[in-house]
Amino acid sequence: MSTTHQPTPATARPVGPPTKHQLAVMIWVAVFPTLTVLNLALGDWLGTLTPVVRTFVLATIAVPIVIYGLMPQLHKLRVRLLSRA
């Protein structure tokens, strides 16, 4: 019979906030694919815009997707991965 100790909610230590490096990786993992998909989906239309307007449009669409959609999921994933360790 195995007696390995599995942490219970009472004994598990909470996972703290991400380090600067972890946060940088999480942001990159969220931002790069988002901008890639937006560029592929809107490329023809964006190509007609000036670089400043194109950047403004991309940022206006990408920032809410990253902040409200992807980052919460990445934080949950990070907690799950670190809780297992």
Score class of each variant (00 low, 15 high):
31 V>H: 01
40 L>C: 06
36 T>C: 00
50 T>D: 15
18 P>R: 07
44 D>K: 05
50 T>E: 15
13 R>Q: 14
13 R>E: 14
39 N>Q: 04
44 D>W: 02
36 T>N: 04
51 P>H: 10
32 F>W: 11
16 G>S: 15
44 D>T: 12
50 T>H: 13
29 V>M: 11
5 H>S: 08
14 P>Y: 09
9 P>N: 02
32 F>Q: 13
47 G>V: 04
15 V>R: 08
30 A>E: 07
36 T>Y: 03
39 N>A: 04
48 T>G: 14
15 V>T: 13
36 T>I: 00
21 H>A: 15
24 A>R: 11
16 G>T: 13
18 P>Q: 07
39 N>P: 01
26 M>G: 13
16 G>L: 13
25 V>R: 15
33 P>G: 00
13 R>K: 14
12 A>W: 03
31 V>K: 01
36 T>E: 04
5 H>Q: 10
14 P>V: 09
37 V>L: 14
42 L>M: 14
17 P>M: 08
37 V>M: 07
30 A>C: 13
14 P>D: 10
30 A>I: 02
6 Q>F: 05
46 L>D: 09
37 V>S: 02
9 P>K: 01
17 P>V: 08
10 A>W: 03
50 T>G: 15
48 T>D: 14
7 P>A: 05
48 T>N: 07
14 P>N: 10
44 D>F: 00
28 W>S: 14
41 A>R: 04
10 A>Y: 02
43 G>Y: 02
50 T>S: 15
38 L>A: 11
27 I>Y: 07
38 L>T: 10
22 Q>D: 14
16 G>Q: 12
23 L>N: 12
37 V>F: 03
50 T>K: 11
26 M>V: 06
50 T>A: 15
36 T>M: 00
31 V>W: 01
26 M>I: 09
37 V>Y: 03
49 L>E: 12
26 M>D: 14
35 L>H: 00
44 D>Y: 02
14 P>R: 07
50 T>F: 05
30 A>K: 03
34 T>C: 07
5 H>P: 00
45 W>L: 12
18 P>G: 11
45 W>M: 09
29 V>E: 15
36 T>V: 02
5 H>Y: 04
9 P>A: 01
25 V>H: 12
7 P>I: 00
10 A>I: 02
9 P>G: 03
11 T>C: 07
16 G>H: 11
8 T>M: 06
12 A>P: 05
38 L>R: 07
40 L>K: 09
16 G>W: 05
25 V>C: 04
12 A>V: 08
21 H>R: 10
30 A>R: 02
40 L>W: 05
42 L>N: 07
28 W>E: 15
39 N>Y: 00
39 N>D: 08
43 G>I: 01
14 P>F: 09
9 P>L: 00
45 W>K: 12
44 D>I: 01
23 L>A: 15
43 G>S: 08
26 M>C: 08
14 P>I: 06
45 W>Q: 13
25 V>W: 06
50 T>L: 10
9 P>M: 01
20 K>A: 15
48 T>S: 13
38 L>C: 08
14 P>C: 12
46 L>S: 10
30 A>D: 06
48 T>C: 00
45 W>G: 06
40 L>E: 10
21 H>T: 11
22 Q>W: 05
39 N>M: 05
30 A>Q: 04
43 G>R: 03
24 A>S: 09
43 G>E: 06
28 W>L: 03
35 L>R: 01
12 A>F: 02
7 P>K: 02
14 P>E: 09
21 H>D: 15
22 Q>S: 11
10 A>E: 15
12 A>T: 08
40 L>T: 05
6 Q>T: 12
26 M>K: 07
